[in-house]
Structure formats: structure tokens, C-alpha cells
């Protein structure tokens, strides 16, 4: 565990808790893509199946359990409790366009052809693109609420910090996992445009809105 990974994990935790808190506090999930949240739920469930087979540390187990629980709670709030506020007309990205190719790729390019490993790979690939429905929704409506922007910033920062963590681990531990690194870089690149808008607008106290 190095500082980059720890701060990355905490940023990840902050992101998902922030989103859950926002929905709960405002009693509304307007502007939030339920499809991105379903895919993140799928990411955590397929990746953390090793909770049942492999113990790494208390930290690792606790974080995994929290991620799964928060993801399920968020999906529940969007699709059940606050369903009336869910902006489905703007959440039109087709999930199968991501899930099917990502599933195919996980079968073809993985570390080991076993069920658990293919599911882990699937989750890594899916995570890299799971935010697309959310970004697509923002591009459709042309704006995002400030808390949603903070959520995206924390989530993007987590992956960017993981890249630094991988550089550190490569140099100091000789560790590298090509699948995670490539997917992590793709994921981070998807946030770049958003990072730019966040720094130029949200950090200056303005709401995130896209140029017409």
C-alpha cells in the first residue's frame, strides 16, 4: 500500500458516498445516470467475488463490502425509492453497447481462463467505460449539478491516482498488471474533458455547463 493508492481509494470512497448522500439529502436523483450506476454495481459484484475465496486484509475486505453495499443502495434509490425523480428521458445510452463488447474482450484478453478471472477482467474493462452514460447524459442536458461534478471529479481522481500508484509499484515493487493499467488509462482519459471543465468552471464557483 502506498500513499497514492490509499488516497485513490479514499477518493473512490468519497465519490460513491457523495453521490449516495446527494440523492438521499435532496430526495432526488435528477441528473444522475442510473445506467452508469447499474454498471458500477456490476463492476463491484463481478470483481469482488474473491471476497469468498481469498482473504487479503481487513482493509481490503471492508472496502470491497462498502463499495458493493453503497452501489446497491444507490441503484435502489434511483430505481425504487426516488424513481419519480429519475431522469430516464436523458439517460438513453444503451448499456448493451458496452457490456457485450467488454464481455467478449474479457473472454479473449485475460490473465487466466477461469470463471473468476474472466469476471475480474470483465469488471476492469467495464469500469473503464461505465461512466459513459453519465457523461453522455451531461452532454445531452448540457449541464450538471455541482455535487454531481464533485462526484465525477473524485471518481476521476481515483483512477488518475491509481496510475501514479502503478508507476510507483512498477519502480519499487516490480509489479505491473497490464490489463489494469491499460483499462485504467482509458478510464482516466475519458475524464480529461470533464477535468478541464471542472477546473475552469466548478472550481471558480460556477455551475458546470457545456458551451452551446
Amino acid at each position: 500500500m502506498n500513499i497514492f493508492r490509499l488516497v485513490g481509494d479514499l477518493s473512490h470512497l468519497l465519490a460513491i458516498l457523495l453521490l449516495l448522500w446527494k440523492i438521499w439529502k435532496t430526495r432526488s436523483c435528477a441528473g444522475v445516470s442510473g445506467k452508469s450506476q447499474i454498471m458500477f454495481g456490476l463492476v463491484y459484484i463481478t470483481r469482488y467475488l474473491d471476497l469468498f475465496t481469498n482473504f487479503i486484509s481487513i482493509y481490503n475486505t471492508t472496502m470491497k463490502a462498502i463499495f458493493i453495499a453503497v452501489a446497491i443502495a444507490t441503484i435502489y434509490l434511483i430505481y425504487f425509492k426516488f424513481k419519480a425523480t429519475y431522469d430516464s428521458n436523458h439517460d438513453t445510452f444503451r448499456m448493451e453497447f458496452l457490456i457485450v463488447p467488454v464481455g467478449g474482450l474479457a473472454f479473449l484478453v485475460n490473465h487466466d481462463f477461469t470463471a473468476l478471472e474472466i469476471l475480474w477482467t470483465f469488471s476492469i474493462y467495464l469500469e473503464s467505460v461505465a461512466i459513459l452514460p453519465q457523461l453522455f447524459m451531461i452532454s445531452k442536458t448540457g449541464e450538471a449539478e455541482t455535487i454531481t461534478s464533485h462526484y465525477l471529479f473524485a471518481l476521476g481522481s481515483y483512477r488518475a491516482l491509481y496510475i501514479v500508484n502503478w508507476v510507483y509499484r512498477y519502480y519499487f515493487e516490480g509489479f505491473f498488471d497490464l490489463i489494469a493499467i491499460v483499462a485504467g488509462c482509458v478510464q482516466t482519459i475519458l475524464y480529461c474533458d470533464f477535468f478541464y471543465l471542472y477546473v475552469t468552471k466548478v472550481m471558480h464557483g460556477k455551475k458546470l455547463s457545456l458551451p452551446a
Binding site: 493508492r5 481469498n54 487479503i56 481490503n60 487466466d112 475480474w120 498488471d177
Partner: peptide, 10 residues
């Protein structure tokens, strides 16, 4: 490397 793959990262 062969054998069990340890995914210690989240």
C-alpha cells in the same frame, strides 16, 4: 507468472 492471481487492489 503461473498460479493464483492475487488482485490486492480495489
Amino acid at each position: 507468472e503461473e498460479g493464483d492471481i492475487d488482485h490486492d487492489e480495489l
